[in-house]
Design a protein around this nucleic acid. Structure first.
Lengths: 227, 227
DNA sequence: GCCGGGGTCAAACAACTGTTTTAATCATAC
DNA sequence: GTATGATTAAAACAGTTGTTTGACCCCGGC
């Protein structure tokens, strides 16, 4: 193969960093191309437009991440031989694989980018992520359904949603919420190796929490809320 | 008092909606003033600049919310007479009060705005929220410290962080993650009255989860990770 | 030699950004 | 009535945005 075009990768790296630092709309093409050391028109030449650039940035890492997630899940299910998995195994295969990717060189900036981009209101991002995530999310949902047969599926979907939110904040709001919670004295710079077990125990505790009382039947307890 | 200037409130309402829909940088002054039906220069006349407008939008609701949160906490602590509160009481006073504010007319758009704005990388927003949140967050942290005396304080701070993330996603990502998790069939439009008990049980489960094993001592298990 | 095309470059494009300016309008006080 | 201060109006401000243009370079094939 001929020498790989270095500018494409440099644009992707710079864009990943800029999108992480300033979000999609806040990161300008001139910032990205300036940081990459390439011409302004290079990104339009190689990627078409800004949207496709973000798509390429996400796809570059998400492909590998989701492949790895499915591989781990396949391995677990093969070892279980039909028996339902433990919830902790599934949660670790999904969220643990994500967080461990942050330990790789350069993976931390992408993790923070991912955490921030999930709340973007731009529609095309959601569409991209839906395409990227659809199959793997379905697989993990089914695995959780089998692992927790006595929990209503609707409840599992909700809790999966909550777990996504907690994880996203944990990796994205590293500096945003540091101001809010002002814990500069405690637990500031002890990397992600401590974050992983903390987050995992929180997620599992939430996932296996006792079910909320069925809401629409107020005949058991007649507790009225501030009438 | 003279007739309250209607344009100020209309600007605030329109800005709240626009900031919720397009975030801070994505919402333009012309969108806001156009939606409010006022002149473009009106916002600069009444608020100075765009940053101060966002500050006013947040302050208008956060003041009442935090006052209510502190009031509920005061009431609980007065009723307990020195005894530590139950964690569920504290969590409900903080997050339940927030979610119940979403049930008020117009409160839902602000809740979604709040959930999205917390991950903004712009510094001044974090500064504003730090000023706004500092005292109430400290009060609730202390309450949790007393309620969970055998849990390390560092761990409580982390889990408070996780709870913030899960809540933020639950209220902000109503449409963003609906695409990802494609649950259009299930639990789409049964308002926030069902969300509250679901989220509360998840948060409490995560808050009271068993502590993670102390991480920095790898002499117990010699499991090496993919050498 | 020359030709062709992938890649880079500076420059300009139209559209949009937040903000300011200046004039016009309004209600109220004298 | 006029004067006064607060609000609104249209227009222009300087700057940035993403994208496009057309010339330019370089390198392998003929």
């Amino acid at each position: 193969m001929p020498e790989l075009p270095a500018t494409r990768e440099r644009i992707l790296d710079a864009a990943e960093h800029a999108f992480m630092a300033h979000r999609y709309e806040g990161a300008s093409m001139r910032q990205i191309t300036g940081e990459a050391g390439v011409n302004l028109a290079a990104v339009n030449y190689h990627f078409g437009n800004k949207e496709s650039l973000l798509h390429a940035v996400l796809k570059r890492r998400l492909d590998g991440l989701n492949q790895e997630r499915l591989r781990v899940l396949d391995e677990l299910e093969a070892a279980a031989a039909g028996a339902p998995l433990k919830p902790s195994q599934i949660v670790d295969a999904f969220f643990g694989t994500l967080l461990r990717m942050g330990a790789e060189p350069g993976g931390d900036t992408f993790m923070r980018l991912l955490g921030r981009i999930l709340t973007e209101p731009a529609e095309f991002i959601s569409v991209v992520l839906a395409q990227e995530y659809a199959d793997v999310l379905e697989r993990f949902k089914q695995a959780l359904f089998h692992a927790l047969p006595d929990v209503p599926r609707e409840e599992i979907v909700w809790r999966f949603h909550f777990m996504l939110g907690a994880t996203s904040y944990a990796i994205a709001g590293t500096d945003a919420l540091r101001l809010v919670t002002d814990w500069q004295t405690e637990a500031a710079d002890d990397g992600t190796d401590r974050l992983l077990p903390r987050l995992m125990s929180f997620l599992l505790g939430g996932l296996r929490a006792p079910l909320p009382e069925p809401p629409a039947k107020p005949k058991q307890r007649s507790r009225r809320k501030t009438p």
